[in-house]
Amino acid sequence: MGERAIEVKGLRKSYGDVEAVKGIDLHVDQGEVFALLGPNGAGKTTTVEILEGYRSRTAGEVGVLGHDPAKHALDLRRRFGIVLQSTGVDPYLTVRETIEMYSGYYAKPRPADGVIELVGLAEKRDTKVSKLSGGQQRRLDVAIALAGDPALLFLDEPTTGFDPSARRNAWEIVRNLTAIGKTVFLTTHFMDEAQYLANRVAVISKGEIVAEGPPDTLAGRDRMLARIRYRLPAGAPSLPEWGQAPVGDGSYEMRAEDPTKTLHDLTGWALDRRIAFEALDVTRPTLEDVYIELTGGEEGSE
């Protein structure tokens, strides 16, 4: 990966006595999709709004596209696009007028129609914003963020409130963005979103980064024991000693350090006795399992 698009060192932010962000380090490479994960109130939005230049910071170093957002906010706004959590656009303008209006703020905007198409609003281009569904308005938000053809995009919980198919669509949009070389800084509390989109994730909890890495290997997820689960058919002989670990619903479960060998032993035993296991399943801990562990299952509060 190339140069750093974002570099943060020792970032702190206090609101009065409350320390919302407690000295975090993170970086995002150019062309990367980086996801900041965390429950509500963990400091995600505070962090991203500092990077966007909306908030001042209490301490630490922040570089976005090589500039300090606290000093060069206007310059930076020419080069990044923003999707914020709760913002609005004028309800009485149409989709196309809205994009035209925003395009005019940039030196080299993307063609309005292309942007509208990219987010799948072509059919709604002459519809007033007030007549769009929630998901469509969110897509319009993304289109606005893309209007200036930015190198870097901030997406703050871009799919909150979407129905499942709208989320899939939004994900495709983000994938399209990375295909055209954009860097994306994403915040989300959806694990599947991070898993699907991000090259790298950081988990923030109570203002601190508690883990950071590619979603597949986050917090040693790839090295955790695999879990093998199965049920015995009715009338099957009892299991050998090593396989006995019944769980609540009548299934058996075992943790395997070497799942290849364990499975071989297990299925060998079954084949010898002409038994077919029911609901045989081998899983690794999901990103969500890791996340719940890292954030202590803390309830969001915001």
């Binding site: 706004r77 020419r78 914020l84 913002t87 609005g88 004028d90 940039y106 606005i144 200036g148």
Partner: peptide
Amino acid sequence: FQRDAGILKRIRGTPLP
């Protein structure tokens, strides 16, 4: 109203002075 609807914040995130 525009401030409370987040319209001003959105504008503020662009290079429009």
